[in-house]
Computed example of a mutant assay.
Amino acid sequence: MKEKIYSLIEQSLEQATEKDLEVLEQLLKGYLEKREGNGTYIGRLFQLEREIEENECVVRMPITDLSNNSLNIVHGGVTATVLDSAMGSAAYTATPEGYATVTSNLNIHYIAPGTGDELTVKARVLHKGSKTIVVEGEALRADGKKVAHATGTFFLLKKK
């Protein structure tokens, strides 16, 4: 398996552009950070930085070539992933001991293109029920323009 990985890396480096090398560096750094026990693969690959308080979470993500689509704006799926991550973290702060949460519904309205240097997602708990938690989130560009607005429902699961 290692030989296969070495071969892929060699092929990647042969005709890589500067942008290709930056993306590869981000991927490899994210992988190593995850291996060191710092978060999840998704969180580390996209360099997500989290600030968590009771019923709230703020996640910041640098906008890079890895997060962009072919139009050079943040891919809608990446925006959805960061929204889900921030909203899930906010829901977790409202989760009773002995329970976990999973996303059961995510509704996103895309408003403006994700451009600039950074995407900031702010999430807050709207309702805490006995079986679900409802959360709201917004994704903002560095200039303050709203990129997307989302609501989500998170189902409470008893941990085993």
Rank of each mutant, 00 (worst) to 15 (best):
M87H: 04
V59C: 10
G77N: 10
L106H: 02
A91D: 01
G144Y: 13
E49H: 09
S130N: 15
P113E: 13
S130Q: 12
V59W: 09
L66H: 09
V134Y: 11
S85T: 15
H127Y: 08
V135S: 01
N55G: 03
V74L: 08
S89Y: 00
E53H: 06
L140S: 07
A90Y: 00
S70M: 14
N105D: 14
L106A: 01
N72V: 11
Q47W: 12
A80W: 04
A91T: 01
D143A: 11
V82K: 08
S104A: 15
G129K: 02
I52W: 00
I111H: 08
P62A: 05
S89R: 00
T132S: 10
L119K: 05
I52R: 07
V59F: 10
K145Q: 14
V102W: 00
G98M: 03
K122V: 12
A86L: 08
G98H: 06
I52F: 01
L106Q: 03
H75V: 06
V58W: 06
I108S: 06
K131R: 13
G114W: 07
T132I: 13
M87A: 07
R124M: 02
H109I: 01
A112S: 15
Q47P: 06
A91Q: 02
L66G: 06
V121K: 05
V58G: 04
L48M: 15
D143E: 12
C57W: 04
M61L: 09
A91M: 02
G129D: 00
G144Q: 14
I133K: 00
N68A: 14
K122T: 13
A112M: 02
L119E: 07
L140M: 13
P62V: 04
A139E: 14
E56N: 13
G144T: 14
S85M: 14
M61H: 06
T115G: 05
R60A: 10
H127S: 02
L126W: 01
D143G: 09
D117W: 03
V121R: 04
Y110S: 13
H75C: 05
V82P: 04
P62I: 04
G114H: 09
G77S: 11
L106Y: 03
L140Q: 14
I108K: 04
T81Q: 00
S104T: 12
D143R: 07
S130T: 14
E49M: 05
S89I: 00
T81L: 05
N107K: 03
